[in-house]
Every structure is written in C-alpha cells, then in structure tokens.
C-alpha cells in the first residue's frame, strides 16, 4: 500500500516521541478515549484507489457506548480496525487512550470482539478466555481466578472445561467477550459481535451486554448494521456512509441507561431510530 501524500501525522511517526509525550498530556486533560482528526484511509487496488475512510472526525469519551452504523462498505469496520491498530490510516491523526493506536495496542488498552468468536478449538473455554493473560505473562493461579470471574460475568460459569465446538454460537460469542474483558482493558471494541446470531439470542445478548457495560463502566465502541440494536445499546450513534467512507451524523441517544427490551417500544426510542434511518437514507446513494 502506498500512502498518498497527506498532512503530516505525528501520531504515527515512531521518530517523534517527544511531540507525542506532549500530546498524551493534552489528550488526558480532555478525557477523550478515542480522538480522530481528519482521519483517512485509502486502499490502493488494481482498480484504482478505494477511499475506505475520508475526513473522519470523532471523539469518544470515557464511559460512552458508541455505535457505528451504516451500510456495508461504509468503513465502519475499517474505522474500528484503525482504532485497534489492525489497519494503518493514510492520513489524519488518531489517539487511543491518549496515545497513538500502536502504543495503545502494545499496552493492551483495548479488548476486541470479532464478528466470529475466533476461539481456538484446541483450547478449552477457560484457556481461551485466559489467552491474553497468558500472552501478558500472568501466573496460572491468577489466570484461573480471572477466568472464573469473567465467565461468571457472561453467565458461562461451569463451562470452563468445555471446548468451543461443544458450545452454541451465542455461548461462544459470550466466551469471546469474556476473553476481551479478562485483562481489564479501558476500551471494548466490538465488530458486529452478534451479527451471525439469530434475533432471539441477539436480543438476549444485547440486554446482557447493557448490564455488563453498566457493571464494568467500560467505554464501548460497537459496530452494527442493525438500527434497533444501535439505538438500544448506545449513548451515541455514529451514522456512516460509503464511497468515500465518512461520518454523516452523530446522534446522541439521551434516554435513560437502564433500558430493557420494552424500551424499544417507547416514543423516545422510535424517534431516535427514525432519525438514524433518515440519516442512513440521506447518506445512501441509490445508484447501485
């Protein structure tokens, strides 16, 4: 991939450590967990450049639950992967927990939940959940303790010795959430975690996730293409649009946090959902 010329990006330059240190202090004062300025990412392909992200400005504060919603190809997953340092932006600045994404990744500032559970079939559930702890060099006794704690948190107590392929899809995804949480990262990045599950399981897991979020006080960034899911879960909804991938609206959902599935029938909920749908419709080019 050839980076296209863009304004200088001190955040991604490993040679500019002093500048970065100053940036850390400034960012921490403002309390933003994720801060993006004019972020862009262009993939060079044989068919010409693909503008996956273009001019993205975004601020996510401590304790927020932010959803990225948009049609496929709008760059919502790419944006999450850029935050996780799994993709490199080609322009703009980005800080995660006050440091560049690369440093945030190496200091294990975030837990990432993928579209699929990505549990390793040769490890039992307990050893899957404690995989990050093993990488971090935590002692076996403490790992076992953490596994029990976080498996209980996602209602999987007693399944420690089972193998992933002996569990249902919903249980597997819950185990992968426990794995993302067990090393207590400040930030939880979730990429359509319930996309492959059926609606009933999904509703159930949405409720559980809300409770989990209230209990752990984590900052959550959540990618979805379901409007009800986004409105139900989020404190803030980021509506995105494709070609080029960009943010077209940021919608606060300020109804109370103690939501139940019935919340989805209230006028306030429907109003926000309507606004999201309008936003998506406005941003969507119907030429395809």
């Amino acid at each position: 991939m050839t980076p296209i010329p863009l304004p200088s990006d001190p955040g991604r330059d490993p040679d500019s450590e002093p500048e970065e240190a100053a940036g850390v202090a400034a960012d921490q004062n403002r309390g933003g967990v994720v801060q993006a300025r004019d972020l862009s990412l262009t993939f060079q392909t044989a068919d010409g450049p693909v503008f996956a992200l273009s001019g993205v400005d975004l601020e996510i504060d401590q304790g927020e639950f932010v959803s990225f919603i948009g049609p496929s190809g709008c760059g919502k997953t790419t944006l999450l992967r850029v935050i996780a340092d799994l993709e490199q932006p080609t322009g703009g600045t980005l800080s995660v927990n006050g440091v560049p994404p690369h440093e945030a990744r190496l200091s294990r500032d975030y837990g990432y939940v993928f579209q699929a559970p990505a549990l390793y079939p040769w490890r039992n559930i307990e050893r899957n959940v404690t995989l990050p702890l093993e990488i971090m060099g935590i002692s076996a006794a403490e790992r076992r303790e953490k596994a029990r704690e976080y498996l209980d948190l996602v209602n999987l107590g007693g399944f420690e010795k089972k193998f992933p392929w002996q569990l249902s899809g919903g249980m597997q995804q819950r185990a992968s959430i426990a794995r993302a949480l067990c090393f207590d990262p400040a930030l939880l990045l979730m990429d359509e975690p319930f996309g492959a599950l059926d609606e009933i399981v999904r509703d159930h897991l949405n409720e559980q996730l809300l409770r989990l979020w209230a209990k752990t006080q984590k900052t959550v960034v959540f990618v979805t293409h379901s409007i009800p899911e986004a409105v139900f879960l989020s404190t803030k909804i980021v509506v995105m649009s494709p070609r080029p991938g960009r943010i077209i609206d940021v919608i606060p959902t300020d109804f109370p946090r103690d939501r139940t599935l019935d919340t989805r029938e209230t006028p306030a909920f429907l109003e926000v959902a309507h606004r999201v749908r309008e936003g998506l419709r406005a941003g969507h080019s119907y030429d395809d």
């Binding site: 990744r105 990432y112 699929a116 390793y120 995989l131 990488i135």
Partner: peptide, 26 residues
C-alpha cells in the same frame, strides 16, 4: 491459521514466537 485468529493475536500485542506457539503451530 485464519485471519481473524491472527488479528486476535495482534490485538494482544503478541510477539512472533507467542503467535507461533499459541496459534500457528497448533
């Protein structure tokens, strides 16, 4: 090993030999 499984290792900042022993060799 699948792309997702590798991304997972990367997200934990795993070293080369950790990824080798815990993911790629199994």
């Amino acid at each position: 090993a699948g792309a997702l499984e590798r991304d997972l290792m990367q997200s934990y900042g795993a070293r080369y030999w950790q990824t080798l022993l815990m993911l790629r060799l199994p």
